[in-house]
Design a binder for these strands. Structure first.
Lengths: 223, 223
DNA sequence: CTGTTGCATATTGAATACAACAGACCCCTG
DNA sequence: CAGGGGTCTGTTGTATTCAATATGCAACAG
């Protein structure tokens, strides 16, 4: 097999997919924004075909809604949707954490610790929100990776992306991020000690708190 | 070819999507089968574009795996994958059942009862497996519909489709279906009584038993 | 004989071209 | 003035065409 390492040969569709996803999650394309295929195609100097295919995948991720002959619209952010997403995470993540911790090795513990430290240093350095988001996900990722459940993992990843859209809306992102850091620290510790009960409780609270914060902010925003 | 009832406002892509999905779930396209775009396009006398788009959606549903420049292959059926799927359901469905039962009205109870009866009559009539599959899903659907959680529901629907592929492999489908009927009866009763604890326990057992059956059959098949 | 290299073919990826639909606008009629 | 109908335009859906990649095979060097 030829080494494809180092060679960056992405397909146009996947490049567009990543770019559009970033724009939606970061809020460049807000909820309700209509993504016109031709506009995106022109912007990237490609045809509409890869755009269409990227949009289909974004729809599968729940980031856009496509109506026949009417096109793709960025999914709206609503309290009900936030509850839907965060509570699905609440059902899935602690469950998968159990599977992960049951099979975790010292190497997995190290990965969790490293992911925690990366988030910490990025936060103290005051790095950009998208960087912090990525590292936040990397931490949750590390917690669950040992479970080795591709499908469940994919579902959780999708939920995280959508959840991220809400988290980026936070008024006081700094407070939320600092709290997240503290939660992560405790989680990493419980993971290292293989204290499943504690870890699950912490994770549930972590997600539930995020849900409540998001809801509160949304309600305030509407008032 | 499906009968076009009334106006066929369906897009080619969605028609192809439904047909391919059926073929995969029913086993016409077995795990590992390579779906060639042009072959399907020729069969339906359409271009490859709708095929490609359908395949992308099937990938999002976890029914096929696409590799760049190598095409789409029907996802393999493995014990690990089955565990992954059924245990994700085990995490999600009882959780959502709680949300559903908390908001359920008498109309919802009726829908559950009707769904149960439909499955029962179809089973006694000895209808085709795909019909029974659809009614089985309709029952689970009815149990959870009142929750009104589109995203969680979409995830569960996808998991059901993949789970169905495994259930269709069952050696003794009749025994499995009869057991399912009994489970459903008890579930419908608990739902009607609003006995959440019992309903959740029954649902968990229902799913866990299905998982175990599937695993056992897979292992035997490999032996 | 073995391993590598280069070519031929099958298949997918993307661009271009054409068709169909939704929505807005205008005009018309009552 | 309200409402209907038709055209017109912008956008999406699909077909067709071209380009790029993977894979198998044959020729060849060692």
């Amino acid at each position: 097999m030829k080494s494809s390492i180092g060679i960056k040969r992405q397909t146009v569709t996947s490049s567009v997919l990543d770019l559009l996803r970033d724009r939606i999650i970061s809020g460049v394309y807000p909820g309700g924004y209509q993504i016109k295929q031709e506009a995106v195609a022109d912007e990237f100097s490609v045809s509409r075909i890869p755009i269409r295919e990227a949009l289909l995948q974004l729809e599968a991720e729940g980031l856009v809604v496509i109506h026949t002959h009417k096109g793709a619209v960025v999914a709206a952010l609503t309290p009900q949707d936030a509850i839907d997403i965060f509570e699905a995470r609440l059902a899935l993540e602690p469950f998968m954490l159990a599977k992960a911790m049951a099979k975790a090795t010292d190497a997995d513990t190290d990965r969790v610790r490293t992911a925690y430290l990366n988030y910490e240093t990025a936060l103290t350095k005051g790095e950009a929100p998208e960087r912090l988001s990525a590292l936040n996900w990397a931490f949750h990722n590390a917690l669950l990776a040992a479970a080795n459940r591709p499908r469940s993992f994919a579902l959780i990843a999708i939920l995280h992306n959508s959840a991220d859209r809400y988290l980026r809306l936070q008024i006081d992102t700094e407070a939320a991020q600092t709290k997240a850091l503290e939660d992560h620290r405790a989680l990493a510790e419980a993971f290292a000690k293989r204290d499943l009960t504690l870890a699950q409780r912490l994770l549930k609270k972590h997600i539930a708190d995020a849900r409540d914060d998001v809801i509160r902010n949304l309600k305030e925003g509407l008032a």
